Amino acid sequence: METLTNLQTKEIVSVNTGARMGYITDLEIDVDSGLITDIIIGSRSSLGHLFNKRDEIVIPWSNIITLGNDVILVE
């Protein structure tokens, strides 16, 4: 079983582009089923928003290809 703390240490990588997308900052959970529906990645914009505002990328849990030891591969 994976914990949120353990998931947050793994870098998210796109299998389509090879791009490093960032790290999990939050999860969305279906309160009725208790299952994770989405992972949320926080990444700093390269444009330097005011006060370094974080942009969020939401990836459906179904787009996760594999949970590796150091990375999470997503479509």
Results as ranks from 00 to 15, higher is better:
Arg44Ser: 13
Asp38Glu: 15
Leu4Gln: 03
Asp32Val: 07
Asp38Tyr: 13
Arg20Phe: 06
Thr66Gly: 02
Lys53Cys: 06
Met1Lys: 12
Leu35Cys: 12
Gly34Glu: 06
Glu56Phe: 11
Ile59Asp: 06
Leu67Asp: 11
Arg44Asn: 11
Ile72Lys: 04
Val13Asn: 01
Ser33Ile: 04
Glu11Thr: 12
Leu67Cys: 09
Thr9Val: 06
Lys10Gln: 07
Gly22Trp: 02
Asn52Lys: 10
Leu50Arg: 11
Ile41His: 02
Ser14Val: 05
Leu47Trp: 06
Val71Trp: 02
Asn69Gln: 14
Asn63Cys: 05
Val31Asn: 11
Glu11Asp: 05
Val71Phe: 15
Thr66Tyr: 08
Val74Ala: 01
Ser43Pro: 01
Leu50Val: 06
Glu11Lys: 15
Gln8Cys: 10
Glu28Ile: 13
Ser45Trp: 03
Val13Lys: 05
Gly48Trp: 00
Asn63Leu: 10
Ser33Lys: 04
Asn63Thr: 08
Arg44Val: 11
Thr66His: 07
Thr5Ile: 14
Ile39Arg: 02
Thr3Cys: 05
Ile12Phe: 02
Ile65Trp: 03
Gly42Asp: 06
Asp30Ala: 12
Arg44Lys: 11
Thr66Glu: 12
Arg54His: 04
Val13Trp: 00
Ile36Phe: 10
Ser14Pro: 04
Ile24Met: 00
Ile12Pro: 00
Arg20Cys: 05
Ile36Met: 10
Ser46Gln: 10
Ile12His: 00
Asn63Lys: 15
Val15Thr: 08
Leu7Gln: 00
Leu47Asn: 10
Val71Asp: 09
Asp70Gln: 08
Leu4Arg: 04
Leu47Met: 06
Thr5Met: 12
Ala19Leu: 10
Leu50Pro: 00
Leu27Cys: 03
Thr3Gly: 04
Glu75Trp: 07
Leu7Glu: 01
Gly18Cys: 11
Asp26Trp: 01
Leu4Pro: 05
Pro60His: 15
Leu47Tyr: 05
Asp32Ser: 12
Arg20Leu: 08
Ile57Arg: 13
Glu75Phe: 07
Leu27Ser: 03
Glu2Ile: 09
Asn69Ala: 15
Glu75Val: 07
Asn16Trp: 03
Ile40Thr: 05
Leu35Trp: 06
Ser62Pro: 02
Val58Pro: 01
Asp38Met: 03
Asp55Val: 11
Glu28Ser: 15
Phe51Cys: 13
Met21Thr: 03
Asp30Cys: 06
Leu67Tyr: 14
Glu56Gly: 02
Gln8Ser: 13
Ser62Cys: 03
Val58Asn: 07
Ser43Gln: 08
Thr17Ala: 05
Thr25Ala: 08
Val74Ile: 13
Lys10Ala: 12
Met1Phe: 14
Ile65Tyr: 07
Gln8Ile: 04
Ser43Val: 09
Gly22Gln: 08
Ile57Tyr: 03
Leu4Trp: 04
Phe51Ala: 15
Arg54Cys: 06
Thr25Tyr: 02
Glu2Tyr: 14
Asn6Tyr: 06
Gly18His: 12
Asp26Leu: 05
Asn63Tyr: 06
Arg44Met: 10
Thr3Arg: 04
Ser45Ala: 09
Ile24His: 00
Gly34Cys: 13
Arg54Glu: 07
Glu28Tyr: 04
Val74Arg: 01
Gly48Asp: 08
Val58Ile: 14
Ala19Trp: 08
Gly18Trp: 08
Ile39Ser: 00
Ile12Gly: 00
Thr37Ile: 09
Asp55Ala: 14
Ile36Asp: 02
Ser46Val: 13
His49Glu: 07
Tyr23Arg: 04
Asn52Trp: 13
Ile64Lys: 06
Asn52Gln: 08
Asp70Trp: 00
Ile72Asp: 01
Gly48Asn: 12
